[in-house]
Design a binder for these strands. Structure first.
Lengths: 201, 201
DNA sequence: TCTTTGTACGAACGATCGTGCTGACAATAG
DNA sequence: CTATTGTCAGCACGATCGTTCGTACAAAGA
């Protein structure tokens, strides 16, 4: 009582490509027709995987999240909690951006800027991902504080805000001006800021 | 030998509205038909002001630049060179973002993220504006250094990178999470960073 | 094997995109 | 006042958008 099941592998290929395109042209710039042509399948066949453009956009965010976890979160979790894990987390982020895992730089930076001023389910999903990320950074920082590797009065949310600011600034500067030096400026800023937090300035 | 000249005031109204829309939906999301309907004029009439969508986008960037100069640059130039001018510059930027001079937050943040990974004249114009801005911040910082209000070895480009990072992070965080506290975090970060640069840490 | 069930395709829908053409109106030059 | 020149509206164009429909094909259950 069943036809051929939907090819889960093909679905992943579609979404990975969708994430690549979206990192450059946005989730709105992503069009079903173009995506289908790129992948050599029919527009309606591809459409059937998702049922609506919004659902495609949400699914794209989900696979981008899993790429992000693999590329940024997991490498940091490979080192024990503490300030060294914080450094590793920043470094994997910079590497993820610099290696152009997504051709348009950080996927989430692109789609956040695109949807931060519009209502809807896509915006909500992007906001939730952003919140998860900043909470993870803050928690990683607070772990280091509790281990005594950062000053007792370190404000984890504040420090997370500043570190994330450096990361995103490096991403956008390097993209816009083709200036790889931006990553070095971010590394310098992060090193200095973490040293200050360690000393308890 | 001349018909009625093009209404320069109307042109400005069009472009100011175009900048508002673009700050929320991007310069691509800005459509001529929607813009014309919003303003109660005909699509082709509005089109005649610019001749192409790309020209409309470039003109929009120009008026957004002049708004930016009025709202951010000029207030800073009202105070004499030195670290106080640097503080004022950051503060007018935060105020410009927080007051939603453009409804989608900083216009340039939105369009930079949109075009940073695509070629073309629009991207070039956005990149040029971004370069002008960061050079202006760096120069303002270096003035303060030469006046002895910042440590001699202060790297103006590095410090400008960090301050701009805080500003943009506040903008996007407040938009995405409706969190006005982001501006306070940016103010805290800026104050601390400038104090460190003054002491010569 | 035959029937059922769901996939993937091609074609077409209405809407909207940027853009060009045509003609009516208004302002200036002579 | 007439002639000229440019603005602006209305309409239509081809293209592309997201979406729907009908059909041919492939797999699994009977």
């Amino acid at each position: 009582m069943a036809g051929r099941p939907r090819d889960e592998r093909a679905r992943n290929v579609i979404l990975r490509r969708a994430a690549d395109i979206s990192s450059q042209d946005g989730l709105d710039g992503l069009s079903i027709g173009r995506l289908a042509t790129d992948l050599g399948v029919s527009k309606s066949g591809l459409f059937g995987y998702f049922g609506s453009k919004e659902e495609l956009q949400l699914a794209t965010i989900r696979v981008a999240t899993s790429v992000y976890v693999d590329e940024v979160i997991q490498p940091a979790l490979a080192v024990p909690p503490g300030v060294e894990r914080v450094r590793r987390l920043c470094e994997s982020w910079l590497s993820y951006s610099q290696r152009r895992v997504f051709p348009g730089g950080c996927f989430f930076f692109a789609v956040t800027a695109e949807f931060d001023a519009r209502p809807g389910r896509v915006r909500d999903a992007v906001a939730a991902a952003g919140l998860d990320w900043s909470r993870f950074v803050a928690r990683t920082i607070d772990d280091a504080r509790q281990l005594g590797e950062l000053a007792d009065d370190t404000d984890a949310d504040q420090l997370a805000f500043e570190l994330i600011a450096f990361l995103e600034a490096a991403n956008v500067t390097s993209l816009l001006h083709d200036d790889a030096g931006a990553y070095e400026r971010a590394r310098t800023a992060i090193r200095r800021r973490l040293d200050a937090a360690a000393a308890g300035s």
